[in-house]
Amino acid sequence: MAVVVWIVEGTWPACVDAAGAHAPYDAEVVLLHVAPADVPGAAHGALAGLLGRGLPAPGRPGPGGPGRDPGERLEHLADASADELLAEAAARLGRPCTLDKRTGRVEREVVAAAEGADLLVVARDGDRAHLGPRSLGPPSRFVVDHAPCPLLLVWPEPAPSTSTLPPPPPPPH
């Protein structure tokens, strides 16, 4: 059995715990982190908007060496931070697992990584104070809609009790 655990900043410990609790011990666990490409992209773009600064042209390495383009520095930092996050997650899981580090459009990379898996573990995100119909952010919503395998959706913290249910709608007249 192959279990893919989607590791996202902020909510990942719950996913790792759920995988530990629900995946059979002989399951092949993959810890997946996707770094959004648009974040360094926004920094590249902000630099490109500064006309005349003699900064690297699009698609060319900068003459000033590494560190001049904040987008490049962000790419390096993102890579290092993904390594750290996955190492922390693996330590928390405490059993053999594979690490999968990707960059791109997050929701599409997650769906692609889940291809052929038997279970995908995803954390609920969105507003935790107001429980309601819009409980997932757009990327999580996309993954839930397009996952090619069964999906385990977990709360990032202990799930709220049923007393938080809104009152039922009034009966029709």
Partner: peptide, 20 residues
């Protein structure tokens, strides 16, 4: 995100940082 349409279009043309 690049401050102007001209810069944006050109970056798209040369595919600098694909689909950034």
């Amino acid at each position: 995100y690049t401050g102007s349409l001209a810069t944006l279009l050109w970056r798209r043309v040369v595919h600098a940082h694909d689909a950034e």
